[in-house]
Design a protein around this nucleic acid. Structure first.
Length: 598
RNA sequence: GGACCUGUGGUGCAGCUCGGAGUGCACGCCGGCCUGUCAAGCCGGAGGUCGCGGGUUCAAAUCCCGUCAGGUCCGCCA
C-alpha cells in the first residue's frame, strides 16, 4: 500500500486532502475527502465506520446516523481529523492513529455490488477481472503495479536523456517487411487492396534515424506482433527502443545497463549488484538455454567423455549431459515417469534417471555410492564412479541424464532444470546477465537455407566473415541479449551499415537481390548515402516491470491486456465490421454468410 | 495447428476416483438486532441451465464424445 505514490502536494476541487495521508499531525483539521467505500462496519442506525479509499490509501470515517452506504459508493466526506480513542488504533493502517469524525457524507455516485470481491484477499477469476478491468484496476495490486510501471518508465526516460539520447517518434502505420513476426495489417481506404502494417518494432525506422544523423535515439515504443500471446507476450507490448551511431557492442550494453539499473532503482530502491556476461555457447552448455536463470544451481554437467567407451547403447550419442537434483531421490515413481514424458515431449529420445544411494555395506570416504536406476545394470562400475564424481552427487540426490545431439541434450535438460528448480518470479535477488556472441544463423530451413537468428540487419562477427559460405552456422553475430532471472528482457546488435555486407547476408538467407530491393529497398538505398556504423537495443518494459512487481504474467502490469486468444473481454474486441465500413476499405468478408447454393 | 489444466447460486472453493434428491463451506446480497469496529459480530432469508450440446444408464455435476471460454505450455515470436 505504501509504495503508492506520495500524494500530490495540493489537492484541488472537491477535496482538501487525500485519504492515505492523514496523520496525527493533522489532528484538529477540518478536511474534505473523496473516494470509494472500501469497507463499512455498521452498528445499527446510530454509528458506522466507513473506510474511505482513494489512490493514496484508506482512512476510517466515523459516520453517525443512518446512511444507505454500500461498497464502492463514491463519497465526499467532510469532517474533523481526530486521534482515535484509547485502544482503537490500527497498526496495520498507515492512517491508523487517526480517524475522521463528525462526518458529513455526500454520495457522489451510487454503485451496484461489484461482480467480484475487491478485498485484496481473494483472487478473482482472470476472465472476470478483465471483463470488469476498471474495477480490477481499483485493487491495491493493480494500483501498485501500474504506478510501479510509471516510475520505472519515467526512470528509463530520464536515464536515456541523461545519456544524451534524443526521444523521437516513428510511424505506427508502417510498410510490410515480411520476414520475422507476423504483422497486423491495416487496409488503405484510398488505395483498395494495399495495406499498411503495424510495426513489429521500430527497427528499420531507427536505423534510418542513424543515417539521418541523430546519433543517439530512444523511444518508449509500442510494438505489435500478430503471434500467439503468452504469459510474457501480448499482441502489443512496450519496448525501451534505442540506437546509437559510432558505437561498439560494449558501448550499447553500457547504455542499457545504466538505463535498466536506473529503472530497477526506481522500482526496488537499489540498483542491481552486477550484470554477469557470458557467451551464448556457455549459456547453452551450462544452463541449456539462452536465457539462464542464475538464481539457482543445478547446472548442466558435461558427461560425454565419461561414457566414451560405454556398452550401453542409449549412451552411444554425440553428447551426454546431466543435472543433479539435490534431494531428488525422494521423487515418486510417477513424478519420474512424468519427467521422462516431459523430456520426450521436448524432443529427447529418452531420459535416464538415477537415485543416488549410500553404497551397500561399508561406507567411508571414497566408497562408491549406489545408483538406483532402470539402466544401472548397463553401466560399468567405473562409469558410475566417474558419473558420481563429475556431478558431485551425494546420497539422496537424483541425477537426470540425456544422451543426444549436443544442442538437444542441453536444451532438454535446461528445460527440466527450470521445471524442477526455478523459484517463483518474486523470489530472491535480481540476477542480470548479458548473453553475448549469439550465432548469426539459427539452424537451417527445409531448403537448407540458414535462418536469421536475430534479424537480417545484424552485423556478423568480423573474425567469422570467412566462414560465411563454408560453415554459416558457426558464424557469430554481434548481437546480445539481456536476461534477468530466466526472462529475456531484450536483445540488440550492431547493425550492418554497408550495402555489400548487407547484400551478402540477404543472399545467404536466400533473399534474391530483386526481392531484397522490393522489401527493404528504402533501407538499402539509404545505406548508399553514407550510413554511420550503428547498433542498438530494445528492452521489454512489460517484462521488466512484471519481474519488479513479482508478477508472473505481463497482463498484470498492463492496464488493458488481451487474453491468450487475443480477445478483450471488456470491449468484446475483435468484432466484425459493418458492411459500409468494409466497402469503404475495399474488403469483403469471405467468412460471412455464403450466397445460397443453387 | 497441438498437449495439458480449469469451468458448480453474484464471488472464491469443496463435491467428480467409486453415478443415487442441487449436498456443503466462506464471502457478497436482502431483512432484523447491535454506539468502537477495522476482512466487525449475532439471528433469519433469498439466490443454481453444475459452461454448452450429444451419448451411456432405471438414474449423470460425477462416466464417454464433441464444443465454447479462460489459463499454462509446444509450434510461432526476424
Amino acid at each position: 500500500m505504501d509504495d503508492r505514490l506520495p500524494a500530490p502536494p495540493r489537492p484541488v476541487g472537491l477535496r482538501t486532502r487525500y485519504c492515505g495521508e492523514l496523520r496525527p499531525a493533522d489532528i484538529g483539521q477540518q478536511v474534505s475527502l473523496c473516494g470509494w467505500v472500501d469497507h463499512r462496519r455498521e452498528h445499527g442506525d446510530k454509528l458506522a465506520f466507513v473506510d474511505l479509499r482513494d489512490h493514496t490509501g484508506l482512512v476510517q470515517c466515523v459516520v453517525e446516523g443512518a446512511h444507505a452506504l454500500r461498497s464502492e459508493f463514491v463519497l465526499r466526506v467532510t469532517g474533523t481529523v481526530r486521534e482515535r480513542p484509547e485502544g482503537t488504533a490500527n497498526d496495520q493502517l498507515a492512517t491508523g492513529q487517526v480517524e475522521l469524525a463528525g462526518c458529513q457524507v455526500e454520495v457522489l455516485a451510487a454503485a451496484d455490488p461489484p461482480p467480484f470481491v475487491l478485498d485484496g484477499y481473494t483472487d478473482a477469476d482472470e476472465a472476470l477481472r478483465l471483463r470488469y478491468r476498471y474495477l480490477d484496476l481499483r485493487t491495491g495490486r493493480m494500483q501498485r503495479n501500474l504506478r510501479l510501471r510509471a516510475r520505472v518508465v519515467s526512470a528509463l526516460r530520464r536515464s536515456m536523456e541523461g545519456q544524451g539520447f534524443t526521444e523521437l517518434e516513428t510511424p505506427l502505420l508502417w510498410t510490410p517487411t515480411p520476414e520475422g513476426a507476423r504483422e497486423f495489417a491495416i487496409p488503405s481506404r484510398l488505395n483498395h487492396g494495399s495495406f499498411y502494417v503495424l510495426p513489429q518494432s521500430p527497427q528499420i525506422a531507427k536505423q534510418l534515424l542513424m543515417v539521418g544523423g541523430f546519433d543517439r535515439y530512444f523511444q518508449i515504443a509500442r510494438c505489435l506482433r500478430d503471434e500467439d500471446p503468452r504469459a510474457d507476450r501480448q499482441y502489443e507490448f512496450t519496448q525501451l527502443d534505442l540506437e546509437a551511431s559510432f558505437v561498439t557492442e560494449a558501448d550499447v550494453r553500457a547504455f542499457v545497463t545504466e538505463a535498466v539499473s536506473a529503472g530497477v532503482e526506481a522500482g526496488r530502491g537499489e540498483r542491481p549488484a552486477e550484470f554477469v556476461e557470458m557467451t551464448w555457447a556457455e549459456a547453452l552448455d551450462t544452463y541449456g538455454v539462452d536465457k539462464p536463470d542464475l538464481r539457482f544451481g543445478m547446472r548442466l554437467v558435461e558427461c560425454t567423455p565419461l561414457f566414451a567407451a560405454t556398452s550401453f547403447n542409449a549412451f552411444k550419442a554425440p553428447a551426454i549431459k546431466a543435472i543433479r537434483v539435490p534431494g531428488g531421490a525422494g521423487f515418486t515413481r510417477s513424478r519420474l515417469d512424468g519427467l521422462v514424458e516431459r523430456a520426450k515431449s521436448l524432443g529427447a529420445r529418452g531420459l535416464v534417471w538415477m537415485r543416488v544411494e549410500p553404497a551397500e555395506g561399508a561406507g567411508g570416504p571414497g566408497a562408491p555410492l549406489g545408483l538406483d536406476s532402470p539402466v544401472a545394470k548397463f553401466l560399468s562400475d567405473d562409469e558410475k564412479v566417474a558419473l558420481v564424481a563429475a556431478t558431485e552427487a551425494e546420497p539422496g540426490d537424483l541425477l537426470l541424464l540425456v544422451a543426444d545431439e549436443h544442442r538437444r541434450a542441453c536444451e532438454v535438460l535446461g528445460q527440466l532444470r527450470v521445471d524442477i528448480g526455478r523459484p517463483p518470479v518474486g523470489e530472491g535477488p535480481l540476477r542480470f546477465c548479458w548473453v553475448v556472441d549469439f550465432p548469426l544463423f539459427d539452424g537451417l530451413d527445409e531448403d537448407g537455407r540458414p535462418q536469421a537468428a536475430h534479424h537480417p540487419f545484424t552485423m556478423p562477427h568480423p573474425d567469422d566473415l570467412d566462414r560465411f559460405d563454408t560453415d554459416p552456422l558457426s558464424v557469430r553475430a554481434q548481437s546480445y541479449d539481456l536476461v534477468c532471472n530466466g526472462w529475456e528482457l531484450g536483445s540488440g546488435s550492431i547493425r550492418i551499415h554497408r550495402s555489400d555486407v548487407q547484400a551478402q547476408v540477404l543472399s545467404a538467407l536466400g533473399i534474391a537481390p530483386e526481392e531484397a530491393e522490393a522489401r527493404f529497398g528504402f533501407l538499402l538505398g539509404a545505406f548508399r548515402f553514407g550510413a554511420p556504423p550503428h547498433g542498438g537495443f530494445a528492452v521489454g518494459v512489460d517484462r521488466l516491470v512484471a519481474i519488479l512487481a513479482g508478477e508472473d504474467s505481463i497482463r498484470d502490469v498492463i492496464a488493458f491486456p488481451k487474453t491468450q486468444s487475443g480477445a478483450d473481454p471488456m470491449t468484446g474486441a475483435p468484432k466484425p465490421l459493418g458492411p459500409r465500413q468494409l466497402r469503404e476499405l475495399g474488403l469483403r468478408d469471405l467468412a460471412g454468410p455464403k450466397p445460397p447454393a443453387r
